[in-house]
C-alpha cells in the first residue's frame, strides 16, 4: 500500500516529489551490518503530576522493556550491531508539543463549521451573526472538540502564543535534532534505525476509558516524536504481556528510510515466525 500512496501528489503540496523506491526489492536481505540503536529516553515517560504540577519520571513496565531487549538480541544474532544509550533527550516534550500544535490546528480546521456553509446551524431565532455563530457552534460541537478548540484558541492567542505555540514549534525543532544526530551518517551513532517500545504500556483492556490514567494520556509519547520530527516509523507485534495483552515494538529511521525500516521489520518477523505467541489470535476473534 505504501508503494501506491507514496510520492508526489499534485493536490497535496506537503507530499514529497522524491522518486519512490521499490520497497520490496531488498526486503528479504536481512540486517547484517546494520546499526540499530536503543535509547534510555524511550524506556521512561515523563509527565506532570496532576496534584503538584511537578514533572515525574517513571520507568516503563519491565515487560515492555524486556520485549525491546529481546528484539535487540534477535537483531544482534542476525548480525546487526546494537548501539545502546543513544540520547534522545527531547522525547519528553512529545506530548506537550502535540497538545499545543494539534489543538491550534484543530481549532483552526474546525472554524469552517460555523453554521454558514458547513456544519449544524442553530434552530433558535437569532438577532445577529455573532449570536448565530455562538449558538451553532455551542450546540453543534461535542465536549472533546470544544476542549480542543478552547485550548487551541488559548495557546495561539496573541498574548500567549509566544509562551505556548511558538515554544512548541521550537521544541519540535529540538526533537527533530535528536533524530538528525542519531541518524547522521557522519555523526557519533550512525544509526540505521532506533528500536523502541511502541507504547509505554501494553494495549489497553477492552473496557478501559480514555483519561482513566496518566499512562493512558501519555500512550502516544513514544509515537508522536516521529510525527513531530517528520521521520518514518513502523510498529510491529512483539508478543504478549503476562496478562495476555499485546506488546508492540517500533523502529524509527531517518528521512526516506522506509525501505530499510521495512527490511529490518521483516527480518524480525521472519526470525520469530515460529514462536508460540504468533499463533495467538485476538480475544475478540476467539469469542472470549
Amino acid at each position: 500500500m505504501l508503494q501506491v500512496i507514496a510520492g508526489a501528489d499534485k493536490a497535496d503540496s506537503t507530499a514529497t516529489i522524491k522518486a519512490v523506491p521499490d520497497y520490496l526489492k531488498d526486503i528479504e536481505k536481512g540486517v547484517a551490518g546494520m546499526r540499530i540503536g536503543l535509547s534510555p529516553d524511550y524506556f521512561r515517560i515523563t509527565f506532570p503530576d496532576p496534584e503538584s504540577g511537578e514533572y515525574i519520571e517513571q520507568a516503563l513496565p519491565q515487560e515492555m522493556q524486556d520485549a525491546v531487549y529481546k528484539a535487540a538480541q534477535v537483531y544482534r544474532e542476525m548480525g546487526a550491531e546494537i548501539i545502546e544509550d543513544v540520547p534522545m533527550p527531547n522525547t519528553r516534550f512529545g506530548i506537550p508539543i502535540y497538545f499545543v500544535i494539534s489543538r491550534v490546528e484543530a481549532a483552526s480546521n474546525l472554524h469552517r463549521f460555523d453554521g454558514v456553509k458547513y456544519g449544524y446551524r442553530t434552530k433558535q431565532a437569532v438577532t445577529d451573526l455573532k449570536e448565530m455563530y455562538r449558538r451553532s457552534r455551542g450546540e453543534g460541537f461535542g465536549l472533546q472538540p470544544k476542549l480542543r478548540i478552547l485550548m487551541g484558541m488559548y495557546v495561539s492567542a496573541a498574548q500567549y502564543s509566544e509562551q505556548y505555540y511558538q515554544r512548541a514549534l521550537k521544541a519540535r525543532t529540538l526533537m527533530r535534532r535528536d533524530f538528525e544526530n542519531a541518524f547522521d551518517p557522519n555523526g557519533k551513532y550512525k544509526l540505521n534505525a532506533l528500536l523502541t517500545p511502541t507504547t509505554p504500556t501494553t494495549a489497553f483492556g477492552m473496557a478501559d476509558v480514555y483519561g482513566d490514567s496518566v499512562m493512558m494520556q501519555y500512550a502516544d509519547q513514544l509515537t508522536v516524536p516521529a510525527n513531530h520530527a517528520g521521520v518514518p516509523g513502523i510498529s510491529i507485534p512483539a508478543g504478549f504481556s503476562k496478562d495476555g495483552l499485546p506488546i508492540g515494538i517500533q523502529l524509527l529511521g531517518a528521512d526516506f528510510s522506509e525501505a530499510s525500516l521495512l527490511r529490518i521489520a521483516r527480518s524480525y518477523e521472519m526470525t520469530t515466525e515460529n514462536e508460540e505467541w504468533r499463533k495467538k489470535k485476538p480475544a475478540v476473534l476467539e469469542g472470549k
Binding site: A107, S108, L110, H111, R112, D114, V116, Y133
Partner: peptide, 14 residues
C-alpha cells in the same frame, strides 16, 4: 500563514 476569523464570506474560517 493562516489568518483566523469568522465571517460568512470566508468559507474556511481562515
Amino acid at each position: 500563514a493562516r489568518k483566523n476569523y469568522f465571517y460568512p464570506d470566508l468559507p474556511k474560517g481562515f
